[in-house]
Amino acid sequence: MKILVCITHVPDTTSRISFTNGDTEFDKSGVQYIIGPYDDYALARAVELKEQSGGTITVLNVGTAETEPTIRKALAIGADEAIRVNAEPTDSLFVANEIANVAKDAGYDLILMGRESIDFNGGMVHGMVGELLGLPSVSPVMTLDLDGDTAKMTREIEGGKETIEVKLPFVAGCQEPIAEWKIPNMRGIMSARTKPLNVVEPSSQAAATKLEKYEMPPAKGEVKMIDADNVEELVNLLKNEAKVI
């Protein structure tokens, strides 16, 4: 069983977001980077599947050299080898083309991704890769179990879930509760240093969008505090000031 897990290198979820250079660049100063939380779920499930039925896990990131500590962390969690496509990921089409290019003749049985990246929140790359490779794509996937060459999944829909069956290979965008996040142990961290991390050059420059400018939301006004014994005042404000009830 060969599993490909595509991971992003993104600011920690507690990061303060700000921009520089006339609001055209993300301000990286003081920001901690992590494996995307959804990608971390995908990786954790891949490690569990490997424990059950053997095989290899390849992690893939499209990014510049600064993503390597994040890739090493994925190796420490349990991936066997890594590929980094050496390019700044400009948009989802660009990333999808690079992932499809790596995967197209490599014979992966399963391509796992996160449901979305937490910087761009596109939720698009898995569907694009599925289409580019002519494979089914399913997202957001909450559970994934294998029975021979068939996968049984649940996919979250508004107000519930649906059960999906599909034959391997296919692409899935994962979210909780597919697996619990795994924390690398000491042995994993040691072995990650010597696992192969291959750097390949990008195959195309196929972006379909162009960033013009970032923007911060308007600052929030002061909170109005209401006495706990006076809930009628809250009802009054919601009715006559906010006009929402």
Binding site: I17, F120, N121, A208, Y214, M216
Partner: peptide
């Protein structure tokens, strides 16, 4: 909307 609602990006569709 980007960064899970913490910011916005103005993008051109080319």
């Amino acid at each position: 909307s980007i960064y899970t609602g913490k910011a916005f990006a103005n993008v051109e569709l080319t």
